[in-house]
Simulated assay, not measured.
Amino acid sequence: MTNNLMGGIIPQQPPIEAESDVHVVKSRLEWGEPAFTILDVRDRSIYNEGHIMGAMSMPIDELIDRAAISLEKSRDIYIYGTNDGQTAKAAEILRSAGFYHVSQLKGGLGAWKAIGGATEGIIESRTPAGADDYNVVSRIKNHVETQQK
């Protein structure tokens, strides 16, 4: 008899991809999956204005020093920046430092907001929900338009 009562019932999470769609992260959050971190590598002042709820601020110029002391190298890390170029640079920095489960969050905060992902921050708290936030058709249309840019 095994000591693991859930053995075989809860499947092992597959390794994360080098790039991830925001839907993947939102799904993991909604299922309450543990053991992953979302990193925002934008400047602290921009992070304070608004970011993905629960994301840790690690500005790109402090990334190696802060990640090395606060994160396990084997942890699943989803990372986003001001744009996809900054995100790719930050992911490469982490991978070069020995973090091997790093995934670039495609579209960053904009893509996250387009699918109704939870946000927090100074500006986010003052911004009322958009008129189309509860209209699934409009949200899908906005998401498709965002992905095409």
Rank of each mutant, 00 (worst) to 15 (best):
A118G: 00
D43T: 06
K106D: 07
Q86E: 15
T146Q: 14
M1R: 09
P59A: 00
A97D: 00
Y134W: 05
G107C: 01
T119F: 03
V136E: 03
M53I: 04
A88G: 02
V136K: 03
W112D: 03
R42M: 10
G110L: 12
I16R: 04
D61A: 00
T37M: 00
M58Y: 06
D61I: 07
E30M: 02
A129D: 13
F99L: 10
N142T: 06
I69C: 12
I10P: 10
N135T: 13
R44W: 12
M58C: 06
R42F: 13
K89A: 12
L39P: 04
P14G: 01
P128G: 00
R42Y: 03
Y78D: 08
D40Y: 11
E30W: 00
R95Q: 13
E30P: 02
K73Q: 15
K73A: 05
G107R: 06
R28E: 03
I10R: 15
Q147D: 13
I93K: 07
E33K: 03
P128H: 01
W112M: 08
D65G: 07
G107V: 01
Q86R: 08
T82W: 06
L71F: 15
S20M: 06
Q104T: 11
G117K: 14
Y100R: 05
V144T: 12
Y80A: 03
K141D: 14
Y80G: 08
S96C: 00
L63M: 06
N135P: 01
E124I: 01
T2R: 02
I46C: 15
